[in-house]
Amino acid sequence: MTLSRPAKWAFGLMAVVCLAFIYVPLTVVVINSFNASRVFSWPPQGFTTEWWHAALNNPGARSAALTSVLVAVAATLFALVMGSLVAFALGRYSFFGRQTVSLLIILPLALPGIVTALALRTAFKPWLGTSWEWLGVAVGPTVIAAHATFCIVVIYNNVIARLRRMGTSPEEASMDLGAGVFTTFRLVTFPLIRPALVAGAVLAFGLSFDEIVVTLFTAPADVTTLPIWIFQSLFRPNQGPIVNVVAALLVLISVIPVYLSQKLSGDPGHAGGRI
């Protein structure tokens, strides 16, 4: 588009302001993790890696991180199955109540977080005391179920978009050549939707790993995910330096999923899959 020079400069300036707004706070978090001062104050008092050593060896933070990974993996696997099933149903068939089902899927993400949180807590109340021990940390079925419920929609969105784009001809060709329903799925459909499944899984994992709004309401008392650990530590001033390091670490590793999804989709415009 042919924009006037001042207009280009104006948009450029606004973009720079916007990017500064996005990145300055994250940079401050990373710098702050090397701050020698025990109490936060800007500018930093001196450089130290002491807190990084302390945080990486902090048993609470480590087991919370492991708990988060386990919960996220379990929720993602559950959501992968449910989300794909429902994407096939809505993407390949038209039936009475189709609109209702698609509304039902999107509801857990569309409604305000506190509503989903309290509703799930009310429903899961009988199982809130149950927790399992996996790899030495406590993991709760209620928190996995809660995460899976709102992860279904991200898998669904990715898979149904893929199904629409690929059409039905590859499957029809396979059937015409004599392959049955299962063979067609295994050799034709599944390889075609695999990138969408991976992109959706990355997104679902990220969503669950980071979730706090619903987690605080649905986690059993002995289950501490990383966000719960950070949330509790925020109110303990002496944990400050350790929280700084964990926060900085989380900022730095957030590059991984973006890189992964760009690499997988091969389309930079869709970084992070479909939300």
Binding site: D210, E211, V213, V258
Partner: peptide, 24 residues
């Protein structure tokens, strides 16, 4: 693509970390 990635990356940074960033 790079610009979109720059906008999307903070979506992946933890919710609590971003709130914490503004606290500081």
């Amino acid at each position: 693509g790079l610009m979109v990635a720059l906008v999307v990356t903070p979506l992946w940074a933890s919710y609590l970390v971003k709130v914490y960033a503004w606290k500081t």
